[in-house]
Design a protein around this nucleic acid. Sequence first.
DNA 1: CGTCTCCTTCGACGACTCTCGTACCATGGG
DNA 2: CCCATGGTACGAGAGTCGTCGAAGGAGACG
Lengths: 120, 120
Amino acid sequence: MTDRDTSRTLAHPEAAEIRLEGVLHALSDPVRLSIVLDLAGSADDLACSHFDLPVTKSTTTHHFRVLRESGVVRQAYRGTTKLNALRRDDLEALFPGLLDSILTAAAAESSRLTRVTTGA
Amino acid sequence: MTDRDTSRTLAHPEAAEIRLEGVLHALSDPVRLSIVLDLAGSADDLACSHFDLPVTKSTTTHHFRVLRESGVVRQAYRGTTKLNALRRDDLEALFPGLLDSILTAAAAESSRLTRVTTGA
DNA sequence: CGTCTCCTTCGACGACTCTCGTACCATGGG
DNA sequence: CCCATGGTACGAGAGTCGTCGAAGGAGACG
């Protein structure tokens, strides 16, 4: 009906439209950071339902939209599921090394906090 | 008077207390990102009054507090002025390469957007 | 067709953020 | 001692964010 087609295609920002502030903001939420971390650890695409997040499905939809609209992930429908992939190439071209260092930092912090929590 | 001494010392998080999400959130604001960029470009410390920000003084105070409480900058009083310095070492130890890639990305985006804006 | 699964939309709520103006404190110089 | 300068505290207002539940659409599969 409107210009916001709800059925087939998903709006993604062009690479040139991606803003650093948006990416940093998208990655500053623990839920979204864990999504990105999971996505980075996997070979290719992951369905939304793959993720085990501590929020409801509508909140999950919200987080994936933030990630998509900030240019961090690319999404595409495949049947009833929606596949998600990191936009590694675009991000690397715009901000060389940024994604990797954030990913490394997130992994480091995750293990650091786990160690503290478990006391090991 | 109270335990919140307003005159001499400023509360900073320990290095181990610095959270990646907090750092990313702190850096996801354009004003704060420009502060950090300016701070990184300078040799050492800069007074708050050095910065030419498009906000009022109270807002500036707010942004510097966010940067300090997230562990991005260290602040110290020197007479009537307050000096600011990036916590490069702490951040580098916690998140290797992160600050540099964000700084590089910010500089790249800044020049990219300037180019677009001026049409040059 | 019926139904199941996956995901979206909508409206709502509380919390937090950014911004400001005004009043204020602390240091330093005349 | 008075005042100028640099920064803070305290509201307060507008906006955004993260979260949820209920309702519903789109494919797949019997």
